[in-house]
Simulated scan of single mutants.
Amino acid sequence: MADELSRVFAALADPTRRDMVARLAVSDATVSQLAEPYDVSIQAVSKHLKVLADAGLVTRTREAQTRPVHLEAEVFDLMTKWIERYRRQAEERYQRLDRLLEEMNDGPAMRTGGDDNTTEKGKAS
């Protein structure tokens, strides 16, 4: 699983590939359609698609004379589970920190009140 995640995150590290994934999330597209908004060759787009395919993010099918590229959304489930696990751990740490800060705020407030009274008495003397 870790190697698969590493390939997925490495594939998505490139902004062009992230943009292609975002476009494929809307609908399947051919290599030519994916190449349209970029100032790169069809070969460059094909190389990007190979990286995405090797990571399991896209597949290509054959429909008549075209070979549309399809986004494999299941891979995002794997990423989501991994991210969610660490999000939960971070949330638990923040909750512990919140409790600690609350305890620290409650404790010094009582001590500060006592110190303030002592200070006031000292001033009055």
Rank of each mutant, 00 (worst) to 15 (best):
A90Q: 06
D54N: 14
T112P: 01
R99G: 08
A2Y: 10
M110C: 06
R85S: 06
A25I: 07
G122T: 15
E120C: 06
R87P: 00
A73R: 08
V40Y: 10
Y86P: 03
M110P: 02
A124D: 13
Q89I: 05
P37Q: 04
E63M: 00
D14L: 11
Y94C: 04
V69R: 00
L57Y: 04
A64R: 11
L78M: 09
Y86V: 00
S32F: 04
T59C: 02
L52K: 04
E63V: 02
T59R: 05
A109G: 08
E63C: 00
A53V: 01
V58W: 00
R7W: 04
V69E: 00
N105T: 08
E102K: 10
R85L: 08
R67S: 07
P68M: 00
A11Q: 07
Y86L: 03
A35K: 09
I42C: 06
R17H: 09
E103N: 14
E102A: 11
Q95N: 05
K81H: 13
R93Y: 08
L52N: 01
R67T: 02
E36P: 06
R62D: 01
D14M: 11
V58T: 11
M79I: 11
D39Y: 12
V40Q: 09
S32T: 12
V31Y: 00
D106M: 05
A25E: 07
P68A: 01
L57W: 04
V21C: 11
Y38A: 08
G107R: 15
F9G: 09
E4S: 13
Y86M: 01
S27V: 02
M20N: 06
V31A: 03
L5W: 03
L101A: 06
R87W: 09
Q65L: 13
S32E: 14
R7G: 03
S32Q: 09
D77L: 09
D14W: 06
L12N: 11
E4R: 15
E72D: 07
K50R: 13
